[in-house]
Design a binder for these strands. Sequence first.
DNA 1: ACAAAAGTGTTACACGTACACCCATGG
DNA 2: CCATGGGTGTACGTGTAACACTTTTGT
Lengths: 235, 235
Amino acid sequence: MTRYSKQTRLLLAIDCIIFGFDGSNIKLLIIKRGMEPEKGRWSLMGGFLQPKESLKECANRVLNQLTGLEGVYLEQLRTFSEYDRDPVERTVSVAYFALIDINKYEKQLSHDYSAEWFLLSEKPKLIFDHDEMVKLAQKQLRYKASLHPILFELLPEKFTIPQLQGLYEGVYDTSFDNRNFSRKVLSTGLLVKQKEKDKLSSKKGAFYYKLDKKKYKANFQAFLNFIPNPDKFIT
Amino acid sequence: MTRYSKQTRLLLAIDCIIFGFDGSNIKLLIIKRGMEPEKGRWSLMGGFLQPKESLKECANRVLNQLTGLEGVYLEQLRTFSEYDRDPVERTVSVAYFALIDINKYEKQLSHDYSAEWFLLSEKPKLIFDHDEMVKLAQKQLRYKASLHPILFELLPEKFTIPQLQGLYEGVYDTSFDNRNFSRKVLSTGLLVKQKEKDKLSSKKGAFYYKLDKKKYKANFQAFLNFIPNPDKFIT
DNA sequence: ACAAAAGTGTTACACGTACACCCATGG
DNA sequence: CCATGGGTGTACGTGTAACACTTTTGT
């Protein structure tokens, strides 16, 4: 016996929901689709699973094609399988969500794919079930960030606490008390204070911090509480 | 154009990690595999995705085949895709985890599949990557149960608070202060007190409770805190 | 000097935890 | 009437939220 008989074979693909933070807002990186059908319409970056490739490898490969980045934060979200989600032929797609430092990616590659960053509120309609994927990814981003320090993945190596707060406020579309926020964040011991200040966004200037990578990895699964009343923000 | 050219097609399957609670311990329902290869060895219950069927439908169908149950709590866990995970032919599998009331399933069907309940500590080795799936499901069970009231899915309609506590203690392999536990649980307002008591497990007897289904559904996403120091139990 | 943002100090209070104690009942 | 498990009362401490106030510096 070399094959399972009487079973249908089908295509398997991945799609990436790529989030970045421009300093003020969360943005989504999408491309203009390069193949038929729906050629030229807005779409998530995706690709077909290759022989001998795992889904994770596939997602990393596809993400690298678009951004030039490696070692990006990438999380399997869910597998989408409605039989008619792709009109050409049955294709099941595994959605991955990625968090990248918006300053690090190679703009040239994005250009090749006619990629663009969009505010979530200004995102055009996407093909197939990609809008649903984005919606779920947003929900998962809020959920996970309310418990674990994933949002650091969106920031550059050095950042200030007001910047971090702005990021959290963007994700949850609300505002926090800055005094309590900074104390909470610092009390985790995850941040290492630098000597320089960022003087651009205020006169007094805010100290830069770096992540203590060891502690970050060690405490990744521990529950945080940067957000008061997280229940309110998770649907 | 009717097909995507030059792409590999493959099989897609689902596997179910089925948990139950026997009153004292969490158990796992597994079967003796009915087809080659590995025929007769212990395996998760699974099945191939059919044309025009979504993965969720597939998982429900397969679960129903084994247990006779419908409307079971079922959650997509992760998709497993190592290219050589099934030696016969490339098959990607979506793992679902299910929580069932152990008293409700139809034993006859289980018998047909040579299914048996195992304590997690006494589980035999499973085929392919199924052990990894079980491990992940266990982790997810602990994680999710620390935040959301999913463990009620494992109990019969009427249950006592000591029973509920025993369940939590089983899942986290620890013990809690019964006085604080009952107060915490009752303070959620999720439980409706019944008039009868369970007199089997103690002389005084413990009141039965039922879930307030409306509140249960409405508050499902809200964060609970039945477990002190949850960090300790989540890896 | 003043405005504007960063950051500190202080207080009130909710909540979780610990534990003494009371309750109900079968043997 | 006592042992056993169910359940209530209460006191203590930690952590969170609210907010007055100080610091720094560019204009």
